[in-house]
């Protein structure tokens, strides 16, 4: 019984939030990875692309709610997602046409494209704040919980409760679907394979008759989709504030690099490594040990490795450590000079 309680405690406070946040990071990191391997630069504007996607979702959600279009207890934000994905893709393509394309044709160094992406980050950030304002937006509607702590306790008779929020369930399911779709596309379709071929060896891809402009188009379609979904899920789960998305770029880069830049599987693993480390390192283990240790062995204090204030800093610490010890990441990624 005590053991079960401690297990539920960990599930409730670490496993479920970790899976949720990890999924959001993984989707973001996939977007960064794909741009990095195919277009060959670190896209600092990716956080703002996510923010743009979330903003589109929010605006559409408002429109739908205003027009009294409802889908039972299902969150409206998920219903409008396909539309906001299209908006995000269009925005990405416009940015590429007016900004990134030039540097690609010039064959600029990747560091120049990186600085360019900072210009895009500023512009997009300003545009978003201009359209929707800098304030906090909550756009979750419908049923809030899949499982409530109270119901769980009643059902099982345990002391510890287990809560699963709808946003958590939606995040995990949508991430699994999207990742399966992405990997199916990259590994099984001719276009997906040609995209990987292009990122492997541009010259040879051209010789093989692969059209680079088409590859770029598809890259932005995928990036826009991933950014919009990742951003929306994060916003649904934690509430949307344009400001936080700027700060999300770094944990996302951390996830991409920890897993091995340029490797999609690495990006996903990286996302979960980051999210679980954040939770495991800042979790107060006192209650956990309360369940599994005899009373007189229980030490004082919260039994926390690092205070919760440092939660996000954990991802930066891991990022820096990985860069210093093993810059290629867990899965050997691609190094693009």
């Amino acid at each position: 019984m005590e053991f079960l309680n401690s297990f539920i405690l960990i599930t409730n406070y670490i496993i479920i939030p970790g899976l949720t946040y990890g999924s959001q990071l993984a989707l973001g990191a996939l977007g960064i990875t794909i741009v990095y391997t195919v277009l060959r630069f670190s896209n600092f504007a990716h956080g703002e692309f996510m923010s743009f996607g979330t903003m589109s979702t929010i605006l559409l959600t408002w429109v739908f709610i205003d027009s009294k279009i409802k889908f039972g207890t299902f969150p409206t934000a998920i219903i409008v997602l396909p539309l906001s994905i299209i908006f995000t893709i269009i925005y990405c393509l416009l940015v590429d046409k007016f900004v990134f394309k030039f540097y690609r044709q010039q064959k600029s160094k990747s560091v120049i494209a990186l600085i360019v992406s900072i210009g895009v980050m500023f512009f997009t950030g300003g545009l978003i704040r201009f359209i929707i304002g800098p304030g906090d937006k909550n756009f979750m509607d419908g049923e809030r919980f899949i499982l409530k702590a109270k119901d769980f306790k009643m059902l099982t008779g345990l002391d510890e409760g287990l809560t699963i929020k709808s946003t958590q369930g939606v995040t995990i399911i949508l991430t699994i679907l999207l990742v399966i779709l992405l990997f199916w596309f990259l590994n099984k379709t001719k276009t997906g394979k040609s995209m990987r071929a292009y990122s492997d060896n541009q010259e040879l891809a051209l010789l093989s008759g692969i059209n680079p402009e088409r590859i770029v188009l598809i890259t932005w379609i995928i990036t826009g989709t991933l950014a919009c979904v990742a951003g929306t899920l994060y916003g649904l789960d934690k509430s949307y504030k344009p400001f936080t998305y700027l700060h999300l770029v770094l944990p996302i880069f951390a996830a991409a690099i920890v897993g091995g830049v340029g490797n999609p599987i690495g990006a996903i693993i990286g996302g979960f490594v980051i999210s679980f480390s954040e939770l495991l390192i800042t979790f107060a283990y006192k209650k956990f040990f309360f369940y599994i240790l005899p009373d007189n062995f229980l030490p004082d204090g919260l039994l926390q490795i690092l205070s919760t204030d440092y939660k996000i800093a954990v991802s930066f610490i891991i990022l820096v450590l990985v860069l210093l010890i093993k810059p290629t990441g867990i899965y050997k990624g691609k190094i693009i000079e």
Binding site: K190, A197, D200, N201, L204, A205, S208, I210
Partner: peptide, 17 residues
């Protein structure tokens, strides 16, 4: 060659057009 593609995928890319 395309180093991270499988051998078969390399050949498929040869037949891309």
């Amino acid at each position: 060659i395309f180093p991270t593609l499988s051998v078969q995928e390399n050949l498929e890319m040869g037949a891309f057009i």
